[in-house]
Nucleic acid binder design. Structure first.
Lengths: 183, 183
DNA sequence: ACCTGAACACCGTTCAAGT
DNA sequence: ACCTGAACACCGTTCAAGT
């Protein structure tokens, strides 16, 4: 990635650079000063474009959730969709370094009612009432996030990995959860 | 809590003070310098007793898990125990301020094999094989932690709370998970 | 053995000033 | 409109020196 200069900063540019730092050096290395340096700019310059670091983290988390939703393959029923959504989230939290940690500290951005509608939509399309759709998804997200947090925590990963296959065990739990909702 | 002085520092004293700060001022306020100040001592003094801040956080997390395990009432079968364990964890993560955030970043301390045995014991006592016991508990812990992380995140709590009853929805998910394991 | 003082290399954020 | 320089109030950790 060549060093830029004399190019206007934009929120998209900032978001991209933030992901690059998080993936290459980890969430702890994502400081406003380093981020600015990668954009060939001084630290305070960022504050013209973003309110503060929390807003940036919120944007990053929203982008991760959106990507996972988009990665869910076409399903034939809400059970199948929910399972694949859980798998996609779990994958997203693990493939992008520190994504799980990021999503656990990020504050939501945007309008709740709007977001809720968009989140529930795929399940509502299969005939589930919106309240149930949101309830089911909240648990699936929680399970995926909780698992990913442990898997992404280096020493905890080693700890758990010493007596179980993490991927398989997550799948077993996810299947049990979806199965339980069917009953 | 009267200001101490001229009293030897011990790991127990440090742990207690750390919990006080976390509960009263939040995890972000738990810096080594503040912790030392509360113990009427200079920052570097802590490093004689603990290896570093990570070790301290690990001790705190272990203590939270142990407390939740101890809070589970007598059960008549593994399903009942598992459900109450999930509820106790959820409660522990919510009643102690920032406990969920702490547990999601804390690195495990101590010997894995030893810990695994202790963790699995209650379910093994009900006749479950250790591998299953650990698998079931890992998912219950993940679900409780994932939920708690969202509930404990102020803006996220408001966001989710605007369209669901958090406590009830967690309970529904936990029941579905345990039900699913029974099938 | 246990603690202090001083230092190192950082943070997020603010704000006047520059262009 | 957009960015810089300087500053404020912090971090975790190390290490020689004190007692």
């Amino acid at each position: 990635m060549a060093r830029r200069s004399n190019i206007d900063l934009t929120r998209a540019l900032i978001l991209g650079a933030a992901f690059e730092i998080m993936e290459q050096e980890g969430l702890d290395a994502l400081s406003t000063r380093r981020l600015a340096a990668r954009l060939s700019v001084q630290g305070p310059a960022l504050y013209w474009h973003i309110r503060n670091k929390d807003e940036l983290l919120g944007m990053m988390a929203a982008s991760i959730y959106a990507e996972a939703r988009a990665a869910v393959p076409r399903a034939e029923g809400w059970r199948e969709w929910l399972t694949h959504y859980g798998l996609a989230l779990h994958e997203a939290f693990r493939c992008r370094r520190d994504a799980a940690r990021l999503c656990s500290i990020a504050k939501p951005i945007g309008d709740p009612r709007e977001a809720a509608g968009a989140i529930a939509a795929p399940l509502v399309a299969f005939g589930l009432p919106e309240a149930k759709a949101l309830s089911y998804q909240a648990s699936v997200i929680s399970l995926a996030l909780g698992w990913a947090i442990f898997e992404v925590n280096g020493p905890m990963h080693a700890f758990l990995g010493s007596f179980m296959d993490l991927g398989k065990t997550f799948r077993t739990g996810l299947d049990a959860l979806v199965e339980g909702y069917s009953a």
